[in-house]
């Protein structure tokens, strides 16, 4: 829960989470409502429930459900890229500054930003300095679904 709250705070999200609505299953974090809660009958066999928020894997890895909610809610910490850069990003690549079409707030080293292609949220980056140049380092992108399927 702390990792999730820190992540939301880092990126300027105002999403409010009530601890009584949160369920953890194998380091994965889910948000549930009372109707769903009342139907849990076998906790030991539970693998997924309600709205998946993300997982704790050394660092916090957000779900695409959470990213989509955040992209609708926050106005800062967003950058927009074109179709070509979007495709490279979902293939796991970092983003060079010249690929940025627009940004909501000035880039600062160490800060996280949502990566947008039009109204679509594709993932998350952190601004990092490499060889005295700022780059947007890929923290998570939606191409993760394909990489996960390969590992099943």
């Amino acid at each position: 829960m702390k990792e999730l709250l820190d992540f939301l705070n880092d990126i300027g999200s105002k999403i409010i989470l009530d601890e009584s609505e949160i369920v953890n299953i194998n380091n994965k974090c889910f948000k549930i409502n009372n109707e769903i809660k009342s139907l849990i009958i076998n906790r030991s066999r539970l693998v997924y429930i309600g709205s998946f928020l993300g997982k704790s894997k050394k660092k916090w890895v957000p779900s695409t459900i959470l990213l989509e909610e955040m992209s609708k809610e926050i106005e800062t910490n967003k950058i927009w890229i074109d179709d070509e850069a979007a495709w490279l990003f979902v293939c796991g690549r970092d983003i060079f500054l010249d690929k940025i079409l627009n940004l909501s707030t000035e880039l600062k080293e160490g800060i996280k930003y949502l990566v947008m292609n039009n109204e679509k949220c594709l993932g998350i980056v952190t601004v990092e300095s490499q060889n005295n140049k700022l780059i947007l380092s890929n923290n998570f992108d939606i191409g993760d679904f394909l990489r996960r399927e390969k590992n099943i």
């Binding site: 139907l39 066999r45 693998v47 997924y48 309600g50 695409t64």
Partner: peptide, 9 residues
């Protein structure tokens, strides 16, 4: 984006 399921193994 499914948010209303309970999945059991």
């Amino acid at each position: 984006g499914v948010k209303n399921s309970i999945v059991y193994w």
